[in-house]
Amino acid sequence: MARRYQCGLDAAMDVIGGKWKALILWALHTEDRRFGELRRAVPGISEKMLIQQLREMESRGIVHREVYREVPPKVVYSLTPLGESLNEALLPLGVWGRDHEEQIAATAPSTTATPDPARPAA
Results as ranks from 00 to 15, higher is better:
residue 1 M to W: 05
residue 2 A to E: 13
residue 2 A to Q: 11
residue 3 R to H: 08
residue 5 Y to V: 06
residue 7 C to V: 04
residue 7 C to H: 12
residue 9 L to D: 09
residue 10 D to C: 11
residue 10 D to W: 12
residue 11 A to V: 03
residue 11 A to S: 04
residue 12 A to R: 12
residue 13 M to I: 05
residue 13 M to Y: 13
residue 15 V to M: 13
residue 15 V to W: 00
residue 18 G to W: 11
residue 18 G to H: 11
residue 20 W to T: 03
residue 21 K to P: 06
residue 21 K to S: 12
residue 23 L to W: 04
residue 23 L to I: 01
residue 23 L to P: 00
residue 25 L to I: 00
residue 25 L to M: 03
residue 26 W to S: 04
residue 27 A to R: 01
residue 29 H to Q: 13
residue 30 T to H: 05
residue 30 T to V: 02
residue 32 D to R: 15
residue 32 D to N: 12
residue 33 R to W: 01
residue 33 R to A: 12
residue 33 R to H: 10
residue 35 F to H: 06
residue 43 P to L: 15
residue 43 P to C: 14
residue 45 I to M: 15
residue 47 E to G: 12
residue 48 K to E: 15
residue 48 K to Q: 10
residue 51 I to N: 14
residue 53 Q to C: 15
residue 56 E to I: 08
residue 57 M to D: 04
residue 58 E to M: 10
residue 58 E to Y: 05
residue 59 S to V: 04
residue 59 S to R: 15
residue 61 G to K: 03
residue 61 G to C: 11
residue 61 G to R: 05
residue 62 I to F: 01
residue 63 V to M: 12
residue 63 V to N: 05
residue 63 V to T: 04
residue 63 V to A: 09
residue 64 H to A: 14
residue 67 V to N: 11
residue 67 V to Q: 15
residue 68 Y to C: 06
residue 68 Y to Q: 07
residue 68 Y to W: 07
residue 71 V to N: 14
residue 72 P to T: 05
residue 72 P to C: 13
residue 73 P to D: 08
residue 74 K to F: 12
residue 74 K to W: 09
residue 76 V to D: 11
residue 76 V to L: 15
residue 77 Y to R: 05
residue 77 Y to I: 02
residue 77 Y to N: 09
residue 81 P to M: 01
residue 82 L to I: 01
residue 83 G to D: 02
residue 84 E to F: 03
residue 85 S to A: 14
residue 86 L to R: 01
residue 87 N to M: 14
residue 89 A to I: 04
residue 89 A to Y: 04
residue 89 A to N: 03
residue 91 L to S: 01
residue 91 L to R: 00
residue 92 P to L: 02
residue 93 L to D: 00
residue 93 L to G: 00
residue 94 G to A: 13
residue 94 G to D: 14
residue 95 V to A: 14
residue 96 W to R: 05
residue 96 W to H: 08
residue 96 W to G: 02
residue 98 R to A: 10
residue 99 D to M: 11
residue 100 H to S: 11
residue 100 H to D: 10
residue 102 E to R: 14
residue 102 E to H: 07
residue 102 E to C: 09
residue 103 Q to C: 10
residue 106 A to N: 11
residue 110 S to E: 07
residue 111 T to A: 13
residue 111 T to R: 13
residue 111 T to H: 09
residue 112 T to M: 06
residue 113 A to C: 08
residue 113 A to L: 11
residue 115 P to H: 02
residue 115 P to D: 06
residue 117 P to Q: 08
residue 118 A to K: 13
residue 119 R to P: 00
residue 120 P to I: 05
residue 121 A to T: 04
residue 122 A to W: 05
